[in-house]
Structure formats: C-alpha cells, structure tokens
C-alpha cells in the first residue's frame, strides 16, 4: 500500500434494520482490514460468533478480493462499494465493483480432478459453500451474499 487510506464504516439504523456501508480502494492490502472493520461493526446476536468468525469473514474476503482483482483490475482510482443490510432475519452483504462484470456460469468447477492442483479458481466455489445465497446482478459486477440468522 503506497498511500494507506483510512477505512470508515458508515452506519444507518431504521427501526429493527441497520445498514453499514464502506468504500474500499482497489488494493488487496485493504481486504483484511476491511473485513475486520465490518465484522467488528455487525450488531450482535443475529449471527453466531462462529459464523461471523468463519463464514462471514471468509465470504466477505473472497467477494472483496474478487471485486478488487477481477472487477476493478487493481485500479486504485476505482472503488469497491460494500453495503451490509442487517435485519432480524438475515445479513445481506452487497459488494459492487466498477468493472464490466462477468458471467458466473462460466466459472469451471475447481474440484474437478484436472483443476484440483491449480492455484486459482476456487473463489466463487468457496463463496457459494459458505453463505445461504449468492446472487449476482445481471451485469455481473455486484454480488449479494445472504447469511440467514443463526
């Protein structure tokens, strides 16, 4: 990171719902700090500590890294927008980049024997394994990850 930028979570609460938002520069060095910042700001009681520690953190790191590397192509002039909707039923994490999107249906299964020893290509598979729902927008530059309460 050449010029570290301070990350700040914005919080907006309406009734029983809370929304957190954060803009992340397109530098992979921000992934860890951004994940810790948002995980620490989540209202307590909705997701178990274990799911926050593992499922939420891993899925968020995965989505953020994909947005920075494949969406914004590490272009520090572009930001990744993160929005977390917390309701009594679920946590919905939206990660949006400024790239041209991709077709998630085009990503091959990384558990195939011929792909097992590849270093890359597991991100989407890991995402889908860790959360209850993964939905991309039509363009493919925004993903919504849902973790239901529990």
């Amino acid at each position: 990171m050449t010029t570290p930028q301070r990350l700040a979570v914005r919080r907006h609460a309406t009734g029983s719902e809370t929304e957190l938002s954060l803009d992340v520069p397109s530098d992979l060095a921000y992934v860890g700090p951004a994940v810790e910042l948002v995980a620490g700001a989540l209202p307590g009681g909705l997701l178990s500590a274990r799911r926050i520690r593992f499922n939420f953190r891993t899925a968020f790191a995965e989505a953020l890294a994909n947005a920075i590397a494949y969406g914004n192509r590490h272009d520090r002039a572009r930001m990744v927008r993160v929005r977390v909707e917390v309701s009594p039923e679920a946590v919905r994490l939206h990660v949006t980049d400024e790239g041209s999107g991709f077709d998630p249906g085009d990503v091959p299964d990384p558990t195939r024997p011929d792909r097992l020893e590849r270093e890359d290509g597991r991100g989407l598979f890991v995402l889908r394994s860790l959360v209850d729902q993964v939905v991309f927008n039509e363009k493919g530059n925004s993903v919504c990850l849902t973790l239901r309460a529990g």
């Binding site: 520690r53 593992f54 953190r57 891993t58 790191a61 995965e62 890294a65 020893e117 590849r118 270093e119 890359d120 290509g121 597991r122 991100g123 598979f125 890991v126």
Partner: peptide, 17 residues
Amino acid sequence: TGYIDSSGLGVLVSLSK
C-alpha cells in the same frame, strides 16, 4: 488460524507442488 480464503488455499497448493 481463524479463516483461510481461496487465495490462501491456492498458495498452499502451489507450495505443496
């Protein structure tokens, strides 16, 4: 270790090789 993402898994695969 708390968590490992797919890049972390990938680096383990590469190191193992």
